[in-house]
Write a protein that binds this DNA or RNA. Sequence first.
RNA 1: GUGGCCGUAGCUCAAUGGCAGAGCACUGGAUUGUGGCUCCAGCGGUUGGGGGUUCAAAUCCCCUCGGUCACCCCA
Length: 538
Amino acid sequence: MPVERRPLERVRGTQDHQTRQATSMDAMRTKCETAFGLHGFRRVDVPVLEPAELHLRKSGLEIISKLYSFHDLGGRRICLRPELTASVVRAAIAQPSPRLPDKMFATGPVFRYERPSRGRFRQFMQTGVEVLGAEGVLADAEIIALAATTLDTIGITKYTVTIGNVGILGELLTHLGLTGRRRALLLESLEDARRHGIEAVRTRFASLDPDLIQPDESTQIRDGAVTAELSSTSQDALARLVAQTSAGDLGRRTLEDVTTRLAARMHADTARAAVDRALAFIDELGAVRGDPDTALDAARALLEAHGLDPKPLDQLSETITLLDAFGVRRERVQIDLGLSRGLQYYTGMVFEVDHEALGAEKQLCGGGRYDDLYRVLGGRQSVTAIGFAFGLERLVLAKEAETIDGTRDNVPDAVFVVPSTPGDAVIAARAATALRHIGVTAALDTSGRAARGAVAFASREGFAYLAMVSRDDPPETLRLRLLTPDGVPADDTISVPDGPIPITSSLEWLRANPASSSESTGLHRSTNRAETGTEARS
RNA sequence: GUGGCCGUAGCUCAAUGGCAGAGCACUGGAUUGUGGCUCCAGCGGUUGGGGGUUCAAAUCCCCUCGGUCACCCCA
């Protein structure tokens, strides 16, 4: 029978983490979580699988279009979570009674169907924090500062914090009476406007909602007559108007019929005017970016020109002052009022942290204020909230980019245990077990190779110690030998118990002479077999 | 999602349309104080996969899978 031997490939956009990478990810996670814990956050774990609806309710088109979703065997619509926030909030709502503020962090894999590239995967790790009961600028500032100081703790320095506020545009849209889908589309187009120009947005908008942008010839005919009366839109007024302007020319339609249609047109006209005004504002708002002082001045002028409340800008200013108090230097901070972010649940302050060495996928962190989400997901009260998430893979990339080549990791002591001959299996097993029993890492050579080859291997792989065991040695003894990367240590260089000694004393000796305290030993050879692939690639 | 580049031994990479190779790794041996260096020998390939053009394809064309860079978007 021929058997299919073709190797199976990974699912596109997923990764295998070999030892070094898995360890880096783990260490990165721990550093982040430790920093979160230091700020009084508690850990929560939430499922990878969620009802698709959780993410359909208010995540925004961008995320939804990339959602992994399917029907399970029970016919339920399930998705792999694309982010953590919605799950954490859902879990919080499910709890008996919230005591605010409730500060939580969560870590785990998330899934988005995107085209993979460096620093961007279909399955990746996020670690993020959420604060429920997060009122005002102090909450804003602390959460941004937490992101920044976590990076400081990790030792990542080349980052920039960019702060925006989607609430400003939101307020204008409310003023203009724009709601629902139009509101969502306009909020989404904030960032588009800057990148592609306001005309591109207008064009896109027209294709999605033709009534609003494109002038309609049939309405224009009557525009002149109607606009004068726009302020009073009562049916009576309309009826009078229609009767005056088109005396006896109504054809088969009733007067009521005509006025109703006209009212609808006028509504479309006011909406169109509102959209035009919103687009103009978006165009200008997107241009407000740069260092805090300059950007805030420009923003104040803009809001004043549009008759909007400057309060969000005062808050932004306060936030930046507070950031300084939290230890985030002003030079790191940029203002960008064109920052919109893909998740639609954001309602106010939004921010991102970028790293300069990461190219296209430079964003380390993103977050902001989402004061509506708690209710949207079924919470019975209104709860202000704020949060952010790091991409762990990107933190690792950023850290590596800043790490000078040749820096060595701290590694534990490790003993490579080699049976002298295949007949020494029993004694080798006993020795390895004895070492592990006192917490010493013992890797047993099970390759079956000749002993001399095993010794060369242990040396090359960077093991700290070699234990060659043989039945011929006296019982309860271990020949322990210190290995160094540079060759055989001369006897006078390092005092090693060379030769048969009692296991008990060799263990004591090991404890007293941890190899990791010596700069010249340890498991840090770059030729480590498991790592050659990833090393060469990066 | 758009455009470009790439895919050859376990790894890093060579090879005018003309015998698929090197270094490292791996296995064995020599030397060494059972030790990395050095030396000798060996193992190792459906050239990502499929189809086409050709006397002849790693090489040219098409499809596909994967990677990567710039956009886009985001963590």
